[in-house]
Design a protein around this nucleic acid. Structure first.
Lengths: 206, 206
DNA sequence: GGCGAAGCGGATTGTCAATCCGGTTAGGTA
DNA sequence: TACCTAACCGGATTGACAATCCGCTTCGCC
């Protein structure tokens, strides 16, 4: 489909990615493309040829993390315990975001027009794998009713955002994740499978 | 302390705020100051005199909502039922953010150097009022142990973020809030006050 | 070692933030 | 009313950055 990159081009591409990753990791979320070019000792044109837009660069940075996540999601769907599968799934989605700011940016914004083919594909693979895990959980009645796949996706992204505010995100991961998991677990309330009843009862009170 | 504004200055200030609010409400989160100036038929200089930085303008926009929130927090601390107080408190924090993007931006970023005096004061009043509600809840044992005031603040901001992703935020407010509230409620798990034990047991499993 | 396609660089244009200062106006005083 | 000055206004200007464009260079195949 795409002719393989010429040697020098491939070299430059890697160099740019490496430098962009470094910049982003050390906190420069703005990722000024001119700046990246200068640091990479490369013309601006080269940057824009490889990554026509800032978003394209960020997506390229996120590719690795995204692929890993898809694997983790598939592994989660194979886990014996249904609920544990959900925990693994959501924890993976959260950890990837904490570890990789570029990935966090991509995953917590809607699918973009003119997104990379790779990213689009990853996105589909991810939601397919996640759907399996979550649907299993719904069948087993361990997932709070009324929550869509998208809801869960958003809530995890929200949790990642919560971690980004304030210091020492990594120390708070488990705490926040626990809150989320308990919030979306059905069986935790009123003994067994309370289903919608529990939700309504509580809602009426507030 | 500050000499009262001259008539024309006050007029301009109000006009700028009105236009900025309109711009932000209709989705222009970038808030380009030159653009605001043009729309208000005013020189750029005027904008920068009143609001030395973009952040200052956003804070000014958020002032009203922030004041309201402080009132709501104080009301929550006077509520008979301790847990209901918590629900009211966090729901108010969430609703204000959904309703007012400027406020959302201010509240979900750390206290800024060179922040407005008003904003700083609001921030203090808010955390004082919130502290009362949350401390009461801790005493009563209805709040999950191990969560600081800041944690709760962050989690609500995260929930607001989750709502901003995707369509129809308002329709999802109750659902997401319910998840959060159940996640931070202690008494919901294992009958009564499970305390840290419940947390540890579940953590060990995952 | 020659050739054409692919890649490169950086000058350039356009946009917007932010500053600065000469001109204007409000509103108090006589 | 007429005057005065501190406060305020406007927009030209500077600077930073995004994004494009095109003449030159390099790769790698024949």
């Amino acid at each position: 489909m795409t002719t393989p990159l010429r040697a020098d081009a491939a070299r430059n591409r890697e160099r740019l990615l490496a430098i962009a990753r470094a910049a982003m990791t050390e906190g420069d979320l703005a990722l000024q493309l001119n700046d990246i070019a200068r640091r990479a000792k490369v013309g601006v044109g080269t940057v824009y040829r490889h990554f026509p837009t800032r978003r394209a660069l960020v997506e390229a940075l996120a590719d690795g993390a995204f692929a890993t996540l898809v694997d983790e999601a598939r592994a989660a769907s194979r886990h014996d315990d249904v609920w544990t599968g959900v925990e693994i799934l959501l924890r993976a989605l959260l950890l990837r975001q904490v570890a990789d700011p570029a990935f966090a940016e991509v995953i917590s914004t809607g699918p973009d027009q003119d997104a990379t083919a790779t990213t689009t594909e990853h996105r589909e693979q991810w939601s397919a794998a996640a759907r399996v895990v979550l649907e299993r959980a719904r069948q087993a009645g361990v997932l709070r009713p009324g929550l869509t796949d998208d809801d869960l996706h958003h809530l995890v992204c929200g949790t990642a955002f919560a971690l980004r505010i304030g210091d020492e995100p990594t120390l708070r991961i488990d705490r926040y994740l626990r809150v989320l998991l308990d919030g979306i677990h059905a069986a935790e309330r009123n003994g067994v499978n309370s289903g919608t009843a529990g939700l309504q009862a509580r809602r009426a009170r507030s």
